[in-house]
Amino acid sequence: NKASVVANQLIPINTALTLIMMKAEVVTPMGIPAEEIPKLVGMQVNRAVPLGTTLMPDMVKNYE
């Protein structure tokens, strides 16, 4: 099973992601793959992301 990106803390709306906000975890359903973490740094979330939430592509602005 591949790990996904999971919020390590509450991430407020429009916050630019940093490494300490994210962790890799095997979850179902899968979200953004953990190997994308370096690419996510500096990208903004378009909603508040609660602690423990799996990051999905539609939660990150301009994620492709």
Rank of each mutant, 00 (worst) to 15 (best):
N1K: 08
N1H: 09
N1C: 15
N1A: 14
N1E: 15
N1M: 14
K2I: 15
A3N: 04
A3W: 03
A3E: 12
A3Y: 12
A3G: 07
S4N: 02
S4C: 08
S4K: 02
S4I: 02
V5I: 13
V6T: 09
A7D: 00
N8Q: 06
Q9V: 08
Q9T: 11
Q9W: 14
L10V: 14
L10H: 13
L10Y: 11
L10Q: 09
I11A: 01
I11K: 00
I11L: 08
P12V: 10
P12A: 07
I13D: 10
I13G: 12
I13L: 11
N14G: 10
N14Q: 10
N14E: 08
N14K: 04
T15W: 14
T15K: 06
T15C: 10
T15Y: 12
A16F: 10
A16T: 06
A16I: 03
L17H: 00
L17T: 01
L17E: 00
T18I: 03
T18E: 02
L19Y: 10
L19R: 05
L19F: 10
L19N: 02
I20T: 14
I20R: 15
I20V: 12
I20C: 14
M21Q: 03
M21Y: 07
M22H: 00
M22V: 10
K23F: 03
A24I: 09
A24N: 06
A24L: 05
A24F: 14
A24G: 11
E25K: 10
E25F: 13
E25V: 13
E25P: 02
V26Y: 08
V26C: 15
V26G: 03
V26P: 07
T28L: 03
T28W: 04
P29D: 09
P29I: 06
P29K: 13
P29E: 09
P29W: 15
M30F: 14
M30C: 14
M30L: 09
G31I: 02
G31T: 01
I32Y: 03
I32S: 01
P33W: 09
P33G: 12
P33A: 09
A34D: 12
A34K: 06
A34P: 09
E35V: 06
E35K: 06
E35M: 05
E35W: 04
E35D: 06
E36V: 07
E36L: 07
E36T: 08
E36G: 12
I37H: 02
I37C: 05
I37F: 05
P38S: 12
P38T: 13
L40N: 00
L40P: 00
L40D: 00
L40S: 01
L40F: 02
V41E: 05
V41W: 14
V41G: 03
V41P: 04
V41D: 07
V41A: 11
G42T: 07
G42R: 14
G42E: 08
M43N: 04
M43H: 08
M43C: 05
M43D: 04
M43K: 07
Q44T: 13
Q44W: 14
V45S: 05
V45L: 14
V45I: 04
V45W: 00
V45A: 04
N46A: 09
N46T: 07
N46K: 13
R47Y: 11
R47T: 03
R47D: 10
R47L: 04
A48Y: 07
A48Q: 08
A48T: 07
V49F: 02
P50R: 08
P50T: 07
P50M: 12
L51E: 06
L51K: 09
G52P: 01
G52R: 12
G52L: 13
G52Y: 05
T53G: 11
T53H: 11
T53M: 15
T53V: 15
T53Q: 10
T54E: 02
T54Q: 04
L55M: 11
L55P: 01
M56E: 06
M56A: 08
M56G: 04
M56F: 06
P57G: 14
P57N: 06
P57C: 14
P57D: 08
D58L: 10
D58Y: 15
D58G: 08
M59D: 05
M59N: 10
V60Y: 02
V60L: 04
V60R: 01
V60I: 10
V60K: 01
V60Q: 01
K61N: 05
K61V: 09
K61Q: 11
K61Y: 12
N62A: 14
N62G: 14
Y63L: 04
Y63M: 03
Y63N: 03
Y63P: 02
Y63I: 02
Y63C: 09
E64W: 06
E64C: 15
E64M: 14
E64Y: 04
